[in-house]
Simulated assay, not measured.
Amino acid sequence: MSAMKIKKGDTVKVIAGKDKGKEGKVLAVNVKDNTVIVENVNMVTKHNKPSAANQAGGISTKEAALHISNVMLVVDGKATRVGFQMDGDKKVRVAKATGKVID
Rank of each mutant, 00 (worst) to 15 (best):
N48Q: 03
D87V: 03
Q85C: 13
N42Q: 00
K78R: 12
D89I: 07
V74H: 06
N70A: 04
G83F: 02
D33E: 09
K22N: 00
Q85A: 06
V41H: 02
I37D: 00
S69M: 06
D33C: 15
V75S: 11
Q55R: 00
R93I: 01
V82H: 00
M86D: 03
V41W: 12
R93W: 09
I68H: 15
A64R: 14
E23V: 06
T80S: 12
N42L: 05
K62V: 08
E23Y: 01
A52L: 07
I59R: 10
S60F: 02
K78D: 10
N34E: 05
H67R: 09
N54K: 03
V29I: 10
V26F: 04
V75L: 05
L66M: 05
S69V: 11
A28V: 06
K32C: 06
K32I: 08
D33M: 15
Q55I: 09
H67I: 08
V82I: 10
A95L: 13
D76E: 02
V71L: 01
V36N: 11
K25T: 02
A56S: 12
K91L: 14
V74S: 05
K46W: 04
T35A: 11
G83A: 08
L66K: 08
S69E: 14
D89M: 05
V94K: 04
V75A: 12
T61K: 07
S51G: 05
K46V: 15
E63K: 03
K32S: 07
M43S: 08
N40L: 11
V82Y: 01
A65Y: 04
D76R: 03
K32W: 15
L73P: 01
D89T: 13
N70G: 14
S69D: 12
L27E: 11
V94Y: 03
D89W: 11
N70V: 04
A53C: 01
H47I: 06
V26K: 08
I37K: 06
N48A: 13
A79G: 05
R81F: 05
A56N: 09
T80W: 01
P50A: 00
V92D: 08
M86E: 15
V26L: 04
G88I: 05
A52G: 12
D76W: 05
V71Q: 14
K49Y: 09
M72S: 09
N70M: 03
N34V: 02
V44A: 10
A56I: 04
K90H: 14
N40D: 06
G24E: 02
N42P: 00
S60A: 11
A53F: 11
V29D: 12
L66V: 07
S60L: 03
A52Y: 13
D76T: 09
A53N: 15
M72W: 13
